[in-house]
Amino acid sequence: MSAASTARAEILRRATAAIGAAGAEPVTVPRRYRSAGGLGPEGRVDLFCERAADYRARVHRFAAAELDAALAARCEELRARRLVAAPAAPWRPGGAEVEVDDPPLAAARLDQLDGVLSGCAVAIAETGTVVLDGSPLCGRRALTLVPDLHLCVVAAANVVETVPEAVAALAPAVAAGAPLTFVSGPSATSDIELQRVDGVHGPRQLELFVVWY
């Protein structure tokens, strides 16, 4: 046997011996925690906006018809002129130059752009989180990571209240092999005297555009 297969066999053998009798008794997991929330659609979106803002994401709420103008205005304010968009992200803020990540841009190129535009798969109200799933609307992982500004459009219909609801909603994507990124506010560190400082390696600014379609 090779060293590798010996190691595998030995670890499994040791673990089997170690658990002994405990291995025979199945452990039941009590799942008495809340799996779903009780808020309606409006309440969920309100909570999401409040919680996301708590972690210093900038949150903007619009009707679908106003989105393009709002994006354009915000890009202008932030002086974000050169953007990259996820392949299926349809938004084109007027006044900004938008490249589409199809074919994929090199990481060094992403580093030179002002910001990235994407959608999200699910948003979690209780924690103010958006989840990206690598789909064409969200883009590959590097896309929403390297640029310093992330403009993320959140469809109100995709906002769930609790973490368990989000995990359930993401199960098919994971089963299909999608990589996931949970994003709650801009990149941060608490490493200096436990003080949360925004912006280390990921985007230092996270702008969320919550839209009712």
Binding site: D54, Y55, T127, L180, T181, F182, P186, G202
Partner: peptide
């Protein structure tokens, strides 16, 4: 925190 800024999950 209610949620940490980033969680990466890959398969």
């Amino acid at each position: 925190e209610r949620m940490n800024p980033y969680t990466s999950i890959w398969s």
